[in-house]
Write a protein that binds this DNA or RNA. Structure first.
Lengths: 216, 216
DNA sequence: TGGAATTTACTTACGTGCAAGTAGAATGTC
DNA sequence: GACATTCTACTTGCACGTAAGTAAATTCCA
């Protein structure tokens, strides 16, 4: 009753192994490119032999896609849960930003996969490189469009706004160890994260505001 | 006189080949990860055999680092040229942003390499993943710090500001073909680029402004 | 209920292909 | 003719995929 092994109701050993493989593969595929990632490392992290992976996933490609799907589904679920439709488009926009930020900070593997998908002209996954991101893009666009229709937002280009806000989130979630000893931060630290969240909010609200640009 | 081949004053055949290899390698390394990139493709683009590459670059690694250095040096040069020191930190900040945006749009290969460097926990290049980016980071930080010292800027975190602005630039320069048929844009199109530049300016100025955050 | 049949969950071992690297020959150029 | 440049032909090694084997768990059935 006390330890985890005994209270996994109806979860077979195989199902656990499968999850373990996915977890390991997530970190392996996040930390290096698809081509550089080795199934040997995945197996080693799980504590099984490489060939055993094939028992659960047809090949490297299938494993990768399973990892990708699981991550994106998690994101979409997390975002949807926080997007209870409101009349207030401003709050929806901020909720979308918040949920993305929180999820990426929680599972930076996804941020890394997305960076790679963007950088790769021939992505590791399927033919359509944004098939998984699309729902998020659409959330974003719908909110902005709706906000503009109700005259709550000014005429900003939704995709450009997303490039700035989304770019910020992705980089916040991936450059933790990268900025040199003097600027290293902990993306998970509550204080740090809230400061960054405020910057994102400020940016988003400023860019969708109806006020005339102060530039020029 | 008219074509480029004829007016390379004192540039030997070998030097031209070397440049051609670098050009080809730049596109090959930009479009896919280091591990996925094939020297065969580089050679083919140049119109030589793979072994000939070795005559100029010791191995794949050396070629990659040459490509990386050339790109970063180009950026640093372009940025420096536009950063004539002024009293006005605000204009310096905008000049830095402008020069980065222009360079990335001109040579999106660099943007892709940077995205990979960020995503990779074990980057393709040397041990220090930001060795090449550092000068830019420092420009950025110095400008913000100086602006704050002179009370021109408010107390924003320089690195977080950079994550947002820099993230925006990198994504603008790399997602041209990615946003689906409905949102495809041309990053080089003057009009489109100016609109995006304004968003970046607006964002940067808003975030460094002394005004109290409107959020909360 | 206990032994046989079957399935689950792996391991060991091998084949295969691809891309990098290497050596030396051939060709071009001044 | 000598040096620079490029090619042909080969070796090496790695990582994937695949096939065959096995122990332990589960199910079947008299």
């Amino acid at each position: 009753m006390s330890n985890t092994k005994e209270r996994n109701e109806g979860v077979t050993r195989g199902e656990r192994t499968r999850e373990n493989i996915l977890d390991a593969a997530e970190s392996v595929f996040a930390n290096q490119s698809y081509a550089a990632a080795r199934l040997e490392d995945v197996a080693q992290q799980v504590g099984i032999k490489r060939a055993a992976i094939v028992y659960y996933f047809r090949d490297k490609q299938a494993l990768f896609e399973a990892v990708e799907s699981r991550l994106f589904l998690g994101l979409i679920e997390a975002v949807s849960a926080r997007l209870e439709p409101t009349e207030n488009h401003q709050q929806q926009l901020l909720a979308l930003i918040d949920s993305c930020l929180d999820f990426m900070v929680e599972r930076p593997s996804l941020a890394r996969l997305i960076l790679r998908n963007i950088a790769d002209v021939y992505p590791a996954s399927a033919s359509d490189p944004v098939q998984h991101s699309r729902p998020i893009l659409e959330f974003f666009e719908q909110i902005v469009t709706a906000g503009q229709a109700s005259d709550e937002f000014g005429p900003v280009n939704a995709m450009q706004l997303m490039q700035i806000v989304g770019g910020g989130i992705l980089h916040y979630a991936t450059t933790e160890q990268l900025l040199g000893d003097d600027h290293r931060y902990q993306m998970n630290d509550a204080e740090t994260k809230e400061v960054f969240r405020d910057l994102l909010h400020k940016t988003a609200l400023n860019l969708v505001s109806n006020a005339q640009s102060q530039v020029h």
